[in-house]
């Protein structure tokens, strides 16, 4: 009898692909921090160092027709959904070649062709629209799923409750991915939520909730597949309660005075999703070095691409207001 692979389990070669993508996000984010500190990047930047396994595990489970909306911390999601690093970096530099053509910036990344319907700078702002997007899929009988990323901080805002309530009520094919990194910007979880388990909030709407280890890409991938199967199968939305860690500040330059002194060091030692995956797949030093060199080239190339990009004309600001 043929060996039946556990549903949702990632094969060894697939895990290696995941590793590569996670490392790309990490190096991209480090480069973003560096270029911001060098004074080259305008605007507000929020990097996702520490949360790479969520972006990759979730997005790699999606079908091509599935769509996502994201948050202010969207670089990882956008790369994982298929946007080229060049286009993302060009957006951060405000160039026409950027994925939002210079109109959005880090907090408003779009790549509609790739199914990225927008990062959102309003916490919880995209959630009702994911419900509505999923409603459109249901109306049209399309086997597609709409998926929202948001943080634990977003579970306190009205749009979260209204959007989940409506999604469950109408049984639309949506997946709500709560990246619980234990901080709403600078405010620790215990100061912003009376409920420690984010799943409790989804369960209150009668929604199926799955707990996920956000530092383990295999777990993220497998559970996202479960959630997608459930939603795509017409069984209603799913809440993914992903516990993760932001191994950096809220924004680039955040002094993190609100964090216990040793927390970050300890988390970096014990909860780095890239270290964990490396151990899991047994990647040797030489292999890692080679991969890192290759990825660094891609990231450096994205900066070169961005810097060589086209500045919008000031009067381009008048375009794209109305269709």
């Amino acid at each position: 009898m043929a060996k039946v692979e556990k549903k949702g389990a990632a094969s060894e070669p697939l895990l290696r692909e995941f590793f590569r993508e996670m490392l790309l996000i990490r190096r991209f984010e480090e480069k973003v921090e560096e270029r911001f500190r060098a004074g080259e990047l305008p605007g507000f930047l929020h990097v996702a160092i520490g949360q790479e396994a969520v972006a990759v595990g979730v997005c790699r489970a999606l079908d091509d027709g599935d769509v996502i909306m994201s948050t202010h911390r969207a670089h990882g999601h956008t790369l994982a959904k298929g946007t080229h690093p060049n286009e993302l970096m060009a957006e951060l530099y405000g160039k026409l070649e950027g994925c939002s053509h210079g109109y959005g910036g880090s907090m408003h990344l779009y790549d509609v062709e790739k199914g990225m319907l927008g990062a959102n700078a309003v916490v919880g702002g995209g959630l009702p629209q994911i419900t509505g997007t999923a409603l459109a899929f249901k109306f049209r009988g399309e086997p597609r799923v709409a998926l929202a990323f948001f943080g634990d901080g977003a579970t306190n805002i009205g749009t979260f409750h209204e959007a989940l309530n409506l999604a469950q009520l109408w049984q639309v094919p949506a997946v709500f991915v709560c990246e619980n990194n234990w901080y709403a910007e600078s405010t620790p979880h215990a100061q912003h939520s009376p409920v420690r388990s984010m799943s409790d909030r989804a369960v209150a709407f009668g929604m199926k909730a799955i707990k996920v280890d956000g530092q383990d890409v295999e777990d993220v991938y497998a559970n996202t597949q479960r959630a997608l199967d459930h939603a795509r199968g017409g069984n209603g939305p799913v809440f993914l309660d992903v516990e993760t860690y932001r191994l950096t500040g809220h924004y680039v330059g955040d002094p993190q005075v609100y964090r216990p002194k040793d927390e970050l060091r300890e988390l970096r030692e014990t909860q780095d999703p890239i270290d964990k995956l490396r151990e899991r797949i047994g990647l040797g030093d030489d292999e890692l070095e080679e991969l890192d060199r290759e990825i660094t080239e891609i990231v450096d190339g994205s900066v070169e691409f961005a810097k060589a990009g086209t500045d919008p004309k000031p009067e381009d600001a008048l375009k794209n207001v109305y269709a």
Partner: peptide
């Protein structure tokens, strides 16, 4: 749920 009604309309419109 005015936020969700309008938001859902926006989401469906984007499709």
């Amino acid at each position: 749920s005015e936020m969700a009604i309008v938001g859902a309309g926006i989401g469906a419109a984007m499709q």
